[in-house]
Write a protein that binds this DNA or RNA. Structure first.
Lengths: 153, 153
DNA sequence: TATTGTTATACTCTATAACTATA
DNA sequence: TATAGTTATAGAGTATAACAATA
């Protein structure tokens, strides 16, 4: 293995780059977010908060599907967020077996603080990069995500 | 905020894209690897195996540093891998407080099987992508990793 | 009966603190 | 005393299976 150099530019070499780079990127982001003790929001929590913030009144099944997690896993996560006072969980008046989720005021604050901190960190790293390279990066990441998501459902 | 469109091509818009895309990519990769019940290797385990496979005889501290994890976390992970028979842990003859790690034959097999399966999956998704776009993708991912890693140590 | 969510149980991964053993 | 590693403890996040409640 190790045979294909980074410059090969084949589907195979790109696959190796992805498999090596994406987890490394994820660790760097997670490490940064973990440092932010003030907010104390993990990456899965962050993703949940972003989704709930964008879809106020959403239900648990939608959250689980968005996270790509099981319903019990989502339920536990939401319970922790409710316990911590950053998400509210109320019954849907229309159906008593469905819940409605939303950010609490604290949740809104925690999310924007955490989001701003991480975005600032990332933007600062990217600040010296030429505009064209930035555009390529955005395009490449979005395209890759689309390619992999179409693979599933 | 949602204000910056994907085409803005600023450091800020790229930061948003990264923060949204990288965790999503990670989940897709993790979900794929989890489906491979045969090997049953998680992403952190996979990264550990790749490192140990490339640095046979490495010690625990090096593994922990490579993973960006604490020494206890790495110790536990290695213990599980040893328990499962895919990593060997022996004492360094030169220093009795240092251990040497290597892949077992089963570990070599499990790693290449898991690696091949995931690489095939990724390469297949990328198979229709033009060579130039592939090159851009590889370049963008590697550059991003370098940018973020230089931020830390 | 089918759907929505929770609870029970179990495991991985992660951390900090306390410890052992060795250099 | 400083270093390499393990153990103790705790908690997040994940899964499947079993359950409750409601439609």
């Amino acid at each position: 293995m190790e045979s294909s150099s980074p410059g090969a530019a084949t589907a195979e070499s790109a696959a190796e780059t992805i498999l090596e780079t994406v987890p490394a990127l994820m660790r760097l982001i997670r490490a940064h977010m973990r440092e932010g003790r003030a907010e104390g929001i993990s990456v899965p929590q962050f993703r949940t908060l972003v989704y709930v913030g964008r879809h106020p009144g959403t239900d648990l099944s939608s959250v689980a599907e968005h996270l790509g997690a099981s319903l019990p896993a989502a339920s536990e996560m939401v319970s922790r967020l409710v316990r911590d006072g950053i998400v509210t969980r109320t019954q849907d008046p229309a159906s008593r077996r469905r819940i409605r989720l939303a950010l609490s005021p604290d949740g809104e604050r925690a999310l924007s603080a955490s989001r701003a901190r991480t975005l600032d960190w990332l933007a600062e790293r990217l600040s010296g990069v030429p505009r064209d390279d930035i555009a390529q990066l955005e395009g490449a990441l979005s395209a890759l995500r689309r390619l992999l998501e179409d693979a599933e459902g």
